[in-house]
């Protein structure tokens, strides 16, 4: 574990909402409620879960685009949360993000070439001629023509714009790249190309990825390890291959069973097999295990205590009472 690039420890983000009445205490939205994970150098960690489970909030916390309520984040041994403004500036060069909607993540009044060169300008790296050359080089790295320098984002397709956004994120040569649903807004036919590009540049630049998605089939393709989030908590984290083969948490099991298979004889993909109801509100999460309201294997203890994230062998961690006393308990499934 010595080679972790990112270490996140008991990270919490509570958003205060508008109070209902004038004198009411403001309700608190527990977007991220105590999560721990490490990201190894050069690996791709997937963060999956339904919308509203805290995936994107985690991404913004790691980049310190929003301030956490508590917890700690270190990047390459540097405490991200304790940095001064100047140090944060230097830190921002090490970590970049690619957003979901490529069109709205680019300034509509700025040529794509200028947009790519912007981070260099922010950090006062290179003069304008060098920035121009670098921007054109990165256009080519992401598979676009350097003649596209003067185009505006609305003249491009979603896939092309996402390539521009990737070029902008790469130009500072960061160590960590956070991909917040990078292909979710793209046409299915374009997805594979952009994923291919992401895998290629990861090898070329030796990047570490945090890959956020709700699409488990995409995560399976690109991620070494995958963490499953539910209502601001990690319920299971394991090597992707292992997680997909034998998920332990009932929620992960349901998610993975819901992946549509291109096999007519295989098990039918149901909406979320065996799980009823909707995700409870993160403003008022259930007592005990957060998943107990929808869990098919609910036990009395689940409504009282919150299961900790425990090792279940080979770095496979799960937060479920079914797997707490691993040996003498028969598997829930």
């Amino acid at each position: 574990m010595s080679d972790s690039l990112v270490k996140v420890r008991s990270l919490v983000k509570h958003f205060k909402l508008e109070p209902k009445g004038l004198f009411d205490a403001p309700p608190v939205l527990r977007a991220v409620d105590g999560i721990d994970f490490d990201v190894q150098r050069g690996e791709t960690l997937g963060l999956v879960g339904e919308s509203g489970c805290g995936k994107s909030t985690t991404a913004r916390l790691v980049l310190r685009l929003i301030e956490p309520t508590s917890g700690s984040i270190t990047l390459d041994g540097v405490d991200v949360l304790a940095t001064s403004k100047k140090e944060l500036m230097a830190l921002r060069r090490e970590m970049q993000i690619v957003f979901q909607d490529p069109l709205s993540s680019l300034n509509p009044r700025m040529s794509v070439g200028t947009s790519i060169a912007e981070p260099l300008r922010f950090h006062r790296i290179a003069d304008k001629v060098e920035r121009f050359d670098l921007a054109r080089r990165y256009l080519e790295i992401v598979g676009l023509s350097k003649d596209y320098y003067d185009r505006l984002p609305h003249e491009f397709s979603g896939g092309q714009n996402q390539r521009v956004a990737i070029a902008r994120a790469l130009i500072l040569q960061p160590k960590l790249l956070i991909l917040d649903e990078p292909v979710s807004a793209l046409d299915v036919s374009i997805r594979a190309q952009v994923l291919r590009l992401l895998i290629d540049v990861q090898a070329e630049f030796g990047l570490t990825y945090i890959f956020i998605s709700h699409d488990l089939s995409v995560v399976k393709r690109v991620c070494n390890r995958t963490a499953v989030l539910y209502l601001g908590k990690i319920v299971e984290i394991a090597e992707s291959e292992r997680l997909y083969r034998e998920p332990l948490h009932p929620y992960s099991q349901a998610l993975i069973r819901a992946i549509p298979e291109a096999n007519p004889d295989g098990p039918r993909a149901d909406s979320l097999a065996g799980i009823e109801g909707d995700v409870p509100s993160p403003v008022n999460p259930p007592q005990g295990c957060r998943f107990h309201t929808r869990c098919p294997h609910r036990m009395p203890v689940c409504t009282e205590k919150e299961p900790p994230l425990m090792e279940a062998g080979d770095g496979h961690k799960v937060a479920c009472f079914l797997h707490q006393e691993a040996a003498d308990h028969s598997d829930g499934q």
Binding site: Q96, I97, S105, F122
Partner: peptide, 10 residues
């Protein structure tokens, strides 16, 4: 989002 992207860029 492009404002957030600019902030993330530094």
């Amino acid at each position: 989002p492009y404002i957030e992207a600019a902030r993330a860029g530094g």
